[in-house]
Design a protein around this nucleic acid. Structure first.
Length: 273
DNA sequence: CGAGCAACCTGCATGC
DNA sequence: TGCATGCAGGTTGCTC
């Protein structure tokens, strides 16, 4: 499921319910995620209070009394809260039970997610320490992208999906943002002007914020719901629309592969030069 | 630095 | 109906 907006929506759904709650039990049914879940995780987490939940890129960070729980949803993961008993579904790998009876359940069919313990400075974690800036921060703007692009010859789409440049821009929203900014995905990053990067930064913020807001509208269903969160609620201009007509000019949208990822764009609106 | 690929997994759509 | 193929929103890590 998740790009940044889905993770942010998950965070907003969980935080009000879980902050100040104390973990009474953790059940792990499958330890094999992207990295093996630490064997001692259940004992480690038991009795700890959730002080705060934050997000860094696509990572969720549960700040506990004695350290941090880092969760990544990978390609297919989701976290859901339940107030009452529900039937176990296939791929429900982890349950975190709280003293007030609330259940937090991780579901992840492809098991590309992560569930890790870290009791040192959170910023120093190997998975987090090299991450780029947050796209919704003020410091993320055209000048930043332009400066970062000096000497970078890779395709601009891969450049904005590089988590060391800016976090949270996944394949769907990279396609969408480039369409909005009228930039061809294959242009070398260092060939793009500062003005174009200003448009691109604006487009990225716009696409992400819109998705978060749409996800937010389904938040009321967050608890014990089977409704799908976030995705595809907003209209996608290009992603998944290869071979169909461009909404802006009617031209047939082209689909190519870039870095093994599906890339869709309009050859008329997004000029390659 | 960057392009390309393989890997980690399951589910789903497609075509024969 | 069954089976093989290819693809999917992420990320690491290797080769050349």
């Amino acid at each position: 499921m998740p790009e940044l907006p889905e993770v942010e929506v998950t965070l907003r759904g969980l935080a009000p319910q879980l902050c100040q709650q104390i973990i009474s039990k953790v059940v792990v049914r499958n330890y094999q995620l992207r990295w093996p879940i630490p064997k001692e995780i259940a004992n480690k987490l038991k009795g700890q209070k959730i002080l705060e939940i934050t997000r860094r890129g696509k990572y969720l960070i549960f700040h506990l009394s004695k350290g941090n729980l880092i969760v990544h949803l990978g390609m297919s993961g989701s976290l859901r809260l339940y107030k009452h008993h529900v039937e176990l579904q296939k791929h429900d790998h982890i349950d975190v039970v709280f003293e007030n009876g609330t259940l937090l359940r991780l579901h992840d069919p492809r098991r590309f997610g992560a569930f890790l313990w870290w009791d040192k400075d959170i910023a120093s974690h190997p998975l987090l320490k090299d991450l780029g800036i947050e796209p919704l921060d003020r410091s993320f703007n055209g000048s930043y992208l332009f400066d970062q692009s000096i000497n970078r010859k890779k395709a601009v789409k891969l450049f904005i999906m590089d988590q060391q440049v800016v976090v949270g821009v996944g394949n769907i929203y990279a396609n969408e943002a480039l369409f909005l900014a009228k930039i061809h995905p294959k242009i070398a990053a260092n060939k793009i002007t500062k003005e174009q990067y200003q448009n691109l930064a604006t487009a990225i913020k716009q696409v992400l914020k819109k998705a978060i807001n749409k996800g937010g509208t389904t938040l009321r269903n967050f608890i014990s719901s089977d409704g799908k969160l976030g995705y595809f609620v907003q209209t996608l201009n290009v992603y998944g629309r290869g071979g169909k007509a461009c909404y802006r000019c009617g031209n047939i949208l082209k689909e190519i592969r870039l870095g093994q990822r599906s890339t869709v764009f309009c050859e008329h609106c997004q000029i390659y030069e």
